[in-house]
Each structure stands twice: as C-alpha cells, then as structure tokens.
Write a protein that binds this DNA or RNA. Structure first.
Length: 297
DNA sequence: ACGTTTTCCTGAGCGC
DNA sequence: TGCGCTCAGGAAAACG
C-alpha cells in the first residue's frame, strides 16, 4: 500500500526516467483510471499528447508532473499530469515490447520511441488526470489537492501549527494521523508504526495529548517514513513496486503493522490486531494502553 | 461546520 | 472443484 515513502520512490523514478520526454500518444484502457478528468478519457489524452513532461513533484501521496506545451515551457499553461496510486496503483517505465500487464489502465508513449510510462492498477482506487495549477501558486500545486496538507518531509511543514491543530480536534489520534488535511502522506502502516514508537493507543482522544506527546508522535512519524524511504519503501507483495518493478525492503523492519501474535520488540508482549474503521490496527497492549473509558451516565 | 460512515474495486486466502 | 465469505484500504461523497 503506497504511502509517503513508496510514493516518493516512484516520484524519483519518474524524475529519472520520463522528465524531458515528449508524449506522442496516450491509450486509456480503463475509463475509471481517468474518472477525475471532468471531460473524460479523450480529453485526457488530447491534453497530454504533444506536451513535454517536467520534473515530478509530490505532496503526501499525490504526484504531479508539470507539462510544457510544444511552444515552450509557458505554453503548458500551468497544467500538470496528476496521479494517485490508491491502494494498488503502479507507475512502470516499461519497454514497448513487454506485453500489456493484466491491469494496465493507461499508457503514455513518447516521441523518442523509448520506454513507455504505464499506469497499472488492480483495484482501481488510483487514477490520473490533467489539471491546472492553483492560481498564483509558485509550486504549481494542482487545484484538486489544494486542501491536502504538507507532509512531514516537506521543509515547509509547520510543526507548531500541526501540534496545535491536532490537539484542537475532537477526535482520536489515529483518525487525526490519517486525516490528509492535517498531515499528509501517513497511511495505515506508518500510523501504526508511529503510534507504537510513541507508546500511544490508536483510540486516544487527541484532546488528552500534551504538546510534547504530539511533538514526539510527529517526530516518530517523520523518522519511520524517512527510514522506510532509505530502503526503498515497504512492500508486502507485488502490489507496491518502483518504476522498474522492484520491491522495497522496509516490511522486515516494521515493529507493529502486520505482526499480530508476534512479540513486541520492546517488551515481548504479543502484538494485537484490532478491527478499526473497516481496517486493522496493530498495537502492543502493554506499551500502548487503551484509554480509560469514561464512566458515563 | 465538523466529525463519522459509506462507498468504490478486485484478487488472495480460507472454510466447507 | 468451486462457491461464498472476508480482508486489504485512500479519500471523495454522503450522512448526521
């Protein structure tokens, strides 16, 4: 499941392999992959064809590639190719002779006749679109992601603002970590890892956390994602790979996620898995004590 | 306005 | 062998 480190690995791959190349043609093999393109698949293809791809950018789990038109950089009009991998999306740089993948959704061909860019997505939660940048934004952030918060690896992420905003929420801590308008890039895996490192239970009300506790949680989220990025991200199966189809190695370094019944690496207690919001939360029942239920009524 | 729940999707894994 | 069920989960949309 691609979260910030995995998406960053893909961003680097795009910067290496497709920047500076001009699109000669686009095949949309599944309309759902471009469902965020208001005018549909044909419009998506028309807006891309003939443009030259710039250096890939990222905010949280979103990627975008600035487009330059045939008339020069300005002629792109501030448009970008924006993408989200969802749960199972892959962007692969693939030789044209390689047979189409089973779940190939979109293909970009280039004027140099070299390796294609393929968007492959089994569960189709991900997608691509061509979009205009937010008016006057020097970073060229596409309009549809203007509400996404900066991520903790962004130098302009404001720690103090985040700490205050999280404590002001009337919700629980894991919900807040997964709220992309508060902090972006954190998904289920790194949320559980950051909570384990911080010895916090996922159901702790945010309002009960002290400023130092939230600051520590943020530092741990940042650390665990940086460590995962350093080894190519987390892969449980073939669903997350870099643009060359290779898996990352962080899954063996996880302390909580996916470790049900295995001993906590701090205290030896068996890690538990709890149903949480139609998904799972992994935690150490000893290190991460559940909040005391309020004696109501 | 804000917080919570539902919805979208497909393949792996499992019990019977 | 195959059917039905559960699970994986990001984030927009719908709901309260």
């Amino acid at each position: 499941m691609p979260e910030l480190p995995e998406v960053e690995v893909v961003r680097r791959g795009l910067a290496n392999w497709v920047a500076g190349r001009t699109v000669s043609g686009v095949d949309v093999l599944h309309p759902r992959a471009v469902r965020r393109q208001p005018a549909g698949a044909a419009d998506f293809a028309a807006r891309l064809t003939g443009t030259t791809l710039g250096a890939a950018q990222r905010r949280g789990k979103y990627l975008w590639v600035p487009l330059a038109g045939p008339g020069g950089p300005a002629a792109g009009g501030g448009f970008s190719l924006i993408g989200h991998l969802g749960m199972s999306g892959q962007l692969l740089v693939q030789d044209p002779t390689v047979p189409d993948e089973t779940h190939l959704r979109v293909r970009l061909r280039f004027t140099d006749g070299g390796r294609e860019l393929r968007f492959v997505d089994q569960r189709t939660f991900g997608g691509l679109a061509v979009e205009e940048a937010e008016d006057g934004d020097p970073e060229g952030t596409p309009v549809s992601i203007a509400h996404i918060a900066r991520d903790p690896l962004d130098p302009r992420f404001d720690d103090a603002v985040f700490v205050a905003a999280l404590r002001a929420r009337r919700t629980t801590v894991k919900r807040a970590l997964l709220d992309q308008t508060l902090i972006s890039g954190v998904g289920n895996i790194y949320a559980d890892e950051a909570l384990w490192r911080s010895r916090l239970h996922y159901d702790r009300p945010t309002a009960t956390l002290t400023r130092p506790q939230v600051a520590l949680l943020l530092a741990n989220a940042r650390e665990v994602m940086a460590a995962a990025l350093a080894v190519g991200g987390t892969s449980f199966d073939s669903l997350y790979v870099n643009v060359n189809g290779e898996s990352g190695y962080f899954s063996r370094d996880l302390d909580a996620y996916g470790r049900e019944h295995e001993p906590c690496r701090r205290c030896g207690t068996a890690i538990r898995r709890a149903a949480w919001m139609n998904r799972s939360s992994y935690f150490c029942p000893r290190c991460q004590r559940a909040p005391r239920l309020r004696a109501g009524g």
